[in-house]
Design a protein around this nucleic acid. Sequence first.
DNA 1: GATGAATGAGCCTTCATTCAT
DNA 2: AATGAATGAAGGCTCATTCAT
Lengths: 207, 207, 207, 207
Amino acid sequence: MILEAARKVFLKRGFRAPTVEIARKAGVSEGTLFKRFPTKPELFMAAMNVETNDQVWQEQLMRSVGTGDMKEALEAAAVSMIQQVQIILPRVMMIHSSGVTVAMDYYLPNKPPVLQHLELLTRYFRAEMKRGRLACASPELQAHAFIGSLYHYVICDFFHRYRPVPAREYVRGVVATLLRATRPERQQNAKQPRAKIAPRRTKGPKK
Amino acid sequence: MILEAARKVFLKRGFRAPTVEIARKAGVSEGTLFKRFPTKPELFMAAMNVETNDQVWQEQLMRSVGTGDMKEALEAAAVSMIQQVQIILPRVMMIHSSGVTVAMDYYLPNKPPVLQHLELLTRYFRAEMKRGRLACASPELQAHAFIGSLYHYVICDFFHRYRPVPAREYVRGVVATLLRATRPERQQNAKQPRAKIAPRRTKGPKK
Amino acid sequence: MILEAARKVFLKRGFRAPTVEIARKAGVSEGTLFKRFPTKPELFMAAMNVETNDQVWQEQLMRSVGTGDMKEALEAAAVSMIQQVQIILPRVMMIHSSGVTVAMDYYLPNKPPVLQHLELLTRYFRAEMKRGRLACASPELQAHAFIGSLYHYVICDFFHRYRPVPAREYVRGVVATLLRATRPERQQNAKQPRAKIAPRRTKGPKK
Amino acid sequence: MILEAARKVFLKRGFRAPTVEIARKAGVSEGTLFKRFPTKPELFMAAMNVETNDQVWQEQLMRSVGTGDMKEALEAAAVSMIQQVQIILPRVMMIHSSGVTVAMDYYLPNKPPVLQHLELLTRYFRAEMKRGRLACASPELQAHAFIGSLYHYVICDFFHRYRPVPAREYVRGVVATLLRATRPERQQNAKQPRAKIAPRRTKGPKK
DNA sequence: GATGAATGAGCCTTCATTCAT
DNA sequence: AATGAATGAAGGCTCATTCAT
């Protein structure tokens, strides 16, 4: 597939990568390439496309509001988000650095993923706050920080191949921090001993 | 100054920006440009230089360990870090996307800023934990997440001109969250010194 | 043909001749030029190629050893040699003066023509001496001098458009001189045994 | 000395050699260089100057006519000529290949050395023929061939570092050949006036 | 439709020449 | 007078784009 090849080449060598190389990698001639994408920038933008058709996790997260286990819901969402960001971030960076001037309107008609994520999480936090399951001064800011933690994991991996722990474990830590920081102070609850973040409770019952 | 001009042009138009344009913007001839920087990639790498000689805040933060107000210390550090990242991040991204192959060893001899930050904060958290002023399962992960929140502020600003609140306010929120999540459980719980998030409970019997 | 054009241009204007000019003269674009010859020096060396696939006369000369008319054989060879040298000499000179550093190994894998010629003639003279049809102190030196006479004809023509007589006539003269100088002294002259070129007779009284 | 340096550099790297390099080698600044020689071609032509102020041997040779030992006179002249040619030939070649268009009038006001040599030797041969000390069909052609043998020695050395024997020995051989070929047929052969090399014997019956 | 040779505009780089010091 | 930094025109080379096959 042409876009596949273009993506690989562009992400490795930048926008400067010659079209011949893309054509060769895609197994087609340059003629064919340019019949499909009349100019290089068009090919580039198509290859760096950032449309995300996988919003399953977004809907799941919102559906969980008020009902499910917040920790589980957030962890699942976070893992999915990391996966998505791993795909999207390099492309967004590539676009921004390419000097291709179409840059700002590339994720039309949708909002750029980062802002989508922000909005979603903000809505989620706000919703859970309304239900009294979360307490924080600014849900938006909280969302910002939460997402930032996740993005940073991707950034460290992408820039420096630095991955201190597996994604899932990282997510657990981040979610735990979040929940601890936003735990509503109920009647100074003696009945919730701990067990919040308890990482490895997978098998046996604690009792 | 040449590097100033080169930086501006490169950051706006990418590595593809013609050297004439840089020369013109710098107010010198192309000849002069190439006498100072023998090749375009060299000029590029010099302009994208990421060496950071301003580690004042790093030292201040570490000096505050055990003594000052943690909130204040962290907020000050965070604001400085954001400022530094605002400068550095676009350059790192530019380098990575440029296809210039010197890419990976560009911040030699020092470590890349991102990892420097991570290390510093980890050390800081660990130090404060030792003093009992902070409690968390994994100081490294905590640092990761904290820094991530700050980076993300820069990213949103850089990519989408999105800046929900002023940096200082954002920082306040993030630090508050952090401190809330890592507040050691004082007097009322003195018999549970650790074991909070305790990731490594693998061996010893709890009893 | 590209090489044809390149040759003409290079021989007239030197290595400095712009590639555009060659392209124009060859009736192609610069792009095509550089697709065929990736760098200018490569084009240059290809155009100045000195490989000589026309060794007919060399074989003919050697085949004539001992049988044919020496004068005719030598004249034919000399005329051919002059023709070949007229092609080769300007190129060799061009290469040497161009400053292109590949210079010394350009006629690999074969020996350079000059030395080829020297070797051939030396072998020829030696062969004819063995047959008693020629007498000289040093066949190699004789060959050297003979060839030199021919080269010089080309040089005068090339440098100064000076051509005192037609090539064929010149050749006749040179061959005649050679044959006269190397005529074996037959029976009637038995009293002059050697003393031919008598190298060190500088001092001794003539008597 | 500037010209010295220029010569070295030009002869090694061709006309393309940068003027900076020459200046550096000459130990002066580029400014000084261009104050002395307003343009590069002028510097080049000055460095490749071919004026020969050492005509001693030419006069000596002519003075020897009819008196001295022809062999010795010719050998001395030949050695001097080789020395001179070793200096001049590379320069002439360089000029011709440089593409510098002043090329044809560079040895004004004198004749180019090659032709000077030719003329001189022709006159010498003719003079000695008049005295009966030499016999040949065409003194000019004889001179041509003689000089050619000497030039070729220089060429082989220059192009291929090929020097079969020391110059002096080579010269002895060449002169010996010449003298043998042009030895007047003394007393015993008075009825063969000319007809030796007989250039135009093509048509008429010899009778 | 697919191909890939040909094009030529554009860009990096060099270097002769100038000129303020 | 000497210097050498600055200039900018020129040239080698690349590569997006076209088009005849």
